[in-house]
Design a protein around this nucleic acid. Structure first.
Length: 732
DNA sequence: CACCCCCGGTTTTTT
DNA sequence: ACCGGGGGTG
């Protein structure tokens, strides 16, 4: 009954119970359906306790959706299941059992920027020249070593005769020691430390093996060695491992994902059953045909024949634009037409690109037409300085050993504490083998430190101490409010009286709203859990289903999603495929898989565009069409005339000077002011205005330097628009 | 000794 | 956007 809606292969996969099972699931073939039905089936038909089930997903959003879909099938059974990402599940395990490997419950998680700060401190201690050995390289190498499950010790053994590696080995060792001293783990550590725990503490391993008798892994093609090892350990006793994936959609090789995991599953887990889902339920024949024609250029892939019953649909639309602005204008024009003539909603559209920097042109074009949009990832909320500062404060409240966070906020806001004071404090802490925060608790630490700086340090210490005292019995929002009050952070920004500072205040309030939302939703609304959840948020997690906005995102961020109409943009050599991947064949294959992922996100309509000229790396460059365009089977395309498409005309507009990162330079601002503005209207705060999409509203602020106007609309809320060109008129 | 302003460098993809 | 360095000020 439960499985009656499935096709025969789906049915076979979902009804299998014991042993290792591999489901090779082509794009849009209903893999989530199979996963949810299989879990529902275990509970309903085989009386497996929900608490014996674990499911590992790629994002938290996917985890929540999976729970909802299981409950829709068999009722409220998921509260005892563990459904989450690898990282979230590891945190859960380490919170309970991390003590066996020397980590207290209150360890903190370092994101990439905390990691960078720590590496910086190591550079200083080891006197490594950043110019000779860039920090980025070090960061990349450390992560690479960890993804390959190399500890500093094992890495040293392998490379002991390579003198060029000596410096890195020292760095890696010190980095790891400092993480431990700070009671912190980076993203990779979450996996490695869990493995370390299981290898060291057999009793703990047996407990988890006995509890999780049925383990599921989604997106198996993107697991790395550590993740592979982890599920091997977890499933080692009962051997019921159900993995789902598609080698053609493996796009995280650069992050350590090992495509061999899925290619060699049957070797790794003898006796595995294999199911191949090849019927696509998502896309039209034209879209699917195009996707197949691209991916077949990859050698070394498991042969697969994805097919569909769906209609041919429209041919895939190809458009060659003059430059990135023209490309964006074309895309937005098509959206407006489709909305007007075919009544598509804004949320039916997605623009997918290779690099985050490409979003700018589309944002500008959408802003101009007043179409609400959301950029997934990109300039991230949690990477804003004020948010990172607050996170650092909160981390320190939980974990007094966290020197990285201490250094970040000890002088934020200004407390007259500079390099010299820090040096003295650091010296004192080093001598005693204690953390910087702990050092603040010793009278002797203040010797030789000016009274001004001492006052600052003591004030800071007492804030953290008093918050730490209430951390276990207070709501996060209460701790947060006290923090804001005691540090005077908002008061400080208010005193600045600049638009920039006002923006920061807005962000802080938004952060507070995030906390409240967390408190309402979470089963365990502790500060510790809030910090972990926030650190492990994925970009996809921020997509809200209810919001009717056009979505802009990278191809990587689009993994697992689908949209009625997709614009796959920027198909140019050096951009997509990326210039960094061109020198190695495996890199190019991964770019091709990325292209395949992009095409197969589309349900009904797909547009593919490229620009003849593009501002890239601050230069206006002529671009060649992507090799992927040439690989596409032309019979699925419309508007692509190879000869015409391949010849270049002179760029229409005179190249403008580069403005790096899309931030408008002074020169740009000047230019835009002298150009005739479409509305010509000048607004000021308090003006009542009318907008053609958002209706009536009131101007909150105008920033001429950034050409931004902030308006609160009666029905659509607060929007930031282009001051010179948004379709706004004064109203009354 | 701390603070402030200006400038230059940095983005392929991310948990 | 953010970070760090350099140089001037208090």
């Amino acid at each position: 009954m439960l499985l009656s809606g499935l096709n025969p292969v789906q049915h076979g996969a979902a009804s299998a119970v014991k042993g290792p099972i591999l489901v090779v699931a082509g794009a849009g073939s209903g893999k989530t359906r199979v996963l949810t039905h299989r879990i529902a089936n275990l509970v309903e038909e085989h009386d497996i306790f929900p608490s014996n089930i674990m499911a590992i997903t790629f994002t938290n959003k996917a985890a929540n959706e999976m729970k909802e879909r299981i409950e829709a099938l068999v009722g409220p059974v998921t509260s005892q299941m563990w459904v989450g990402t690898f990282h979230a599940i590891c945190v859960r395990i380490l919170r309970r059992d991390g003590e066996s490997i020397g980590y207290a419950q209150d360890f903190v998680i370092y994101d990439t920027s905390d990691q960078k700060s720590l590496i910086k401190a190591c550079y200083k201690a080891l006197d490594i020249d950043e110019k000779r050995f860039p920090m980025k390289t070090a960061q990349y190498k450390i992560s690479g070593a960890k993804n390959d499950m190399q500890t500093p010790e094992s890495y040293e053994k392998i490379n002991e005769h390579d003198y060029r590696e000596r410096e890195f080995i020292k760095l890696y060792k010190l980095y790891q020691d400092k993480l431990k001293a700070n009671q912190a783990m980076d993203f990779d550590d979450l996996l490695l430390k869990t493995i370390e725990l299981f290898k060291k503490d057999k009793e703990a391993l047996a407990r988890y093996q006995n509890r999780f008798r049925y383990i599921h892994v989604d997106e198996y093609q993107d697991t790395n060695r550590a993740q592979y090892e982890l599920i091997r350990l977890l499933s080692g006793l009962h051997g019921n491992l159900f993995v789902v994936g598609d080698g053609d959609q493996s796009i995280y090789r650069w992050r350590g994902a090992d495509i061999r995991n899925i290619q060699e599953f049957e070797k790794d887990f003898p006796g595995a059953q294999l199911f191949k889902l090849e019927q696509n339920y998502r896309s039209t024949k034209n879209i699917l045909g195009l996707a197949n024609s691209v991916i077949k250029h990859n050698p070394n892939r498991r042969e697969k024949n994805l097919w569909t019953d769906a209609d041919d649909g429209e041919k895939v639309h190809y458009h060659c634009a003059q430059d990135e602005k023209d490309e964006a204008r074309f895309v937005v024009r098509e959206m407006l037409n489709r909305m007007r003539e075919e009544h598509y909603k804004r949320s039916d559209f997605a623009v997918l690109y290779r690099t985050n920097a490409q979003s700018r042109a589309f944002e500008d074009a959408l802003l101009l037409e007043g179409i609400p949009y959301k950029v997934v990832g990109g300039a991230k909320f949690y990477e804003r300085k004020e948010i990172k500062d607050l996170m650092a404060y909160l981390k320190l409240v939980v974990n007094r050993f966290d020197d990285v966070s201490f250094l970040r906020v000890i002088n934020e806001p200004k407390r007259s504490i500079g390099d010299k004071t820090i040096e003295k404090l650091q010296h004192f802490a080093n001598e005693r083998g204690i953390s910087l925060l702990e050092a603040c608790g010793f009278e002797e630490a203040y010797e030789g430190i000016s009274s001004k700086a001492s006052t600052g340090l003591k004030g800071f210490f007492s804030i953290i101490k008093s918050l730490h005292a209430i951390v276990d019995q207070s709501f996060v929002s209460v701790i947060f409010d006290k923090l804001i009050e005691m540090t005077g952070i908002i008061a400080g920004y208010e005193a600045e009286r600049t638009i920039e500072a006002d923006g920061r205040i807005d962000n802080i309030y938004e952060f507070r709203a995030v906390i409240e939302e967390f408190e309402k939703r979470s089963e365990s609304p502790t500060l510790r859990d809030f910090l972990a959840e926030t650190s492990l948020r994925s970009d996809q997690d921020s997509i809200e289903d209810s919001e009717d906005s056009v979505l802009l995102m990278t191809l990587h961020a689009s993994k697992g999603l689908e949209f009625p109409i997709v614009f796959l943009v920027g198909l140019e050599e050096q951009l997509f495929p990326s210039f960094r991947s061109m020198d190695d064949p495996e890199g190019l294959e991964e770019e091709r898989r990325l292209c395949y992922v992009g095409i197969t996100r589309a349900e009904k309509v797909l547009y593919i565009t490229h620009a003849k000229n593009r501002n890239q790396f601050g230069r206006f460059e002529e671009k060649m069409p992507s090799c992927f365009l040439k690989e596409m089977d032309q019979s699925y395309l419309e508007g692509y005339e190879p000869k015409k498409g391949l010849t270049f005309g002179k760029p229409e507009a005179k190249p403008k000077p580069a403005s790096f990162f899309g931030v408008k330079t002074k020169r740009d601002t000047f230019a835009s002011k002298t150009e005739p503005s479409s509305s010509g209207a000048f607004f000021s705060a308090g003006d009542k205005v009318m907008h053609k999409m958002f209706g009536s509203g009131m101007v909150l602020s105008v920033d001429h330097a950034k050409d931004l106007i902030t308006v609160v609309f009666d029905t659509s809320g607060i929007k930031k628009l282009s001051a010179s060109s948004a379709p706004l008129v004064r109203n009354g």
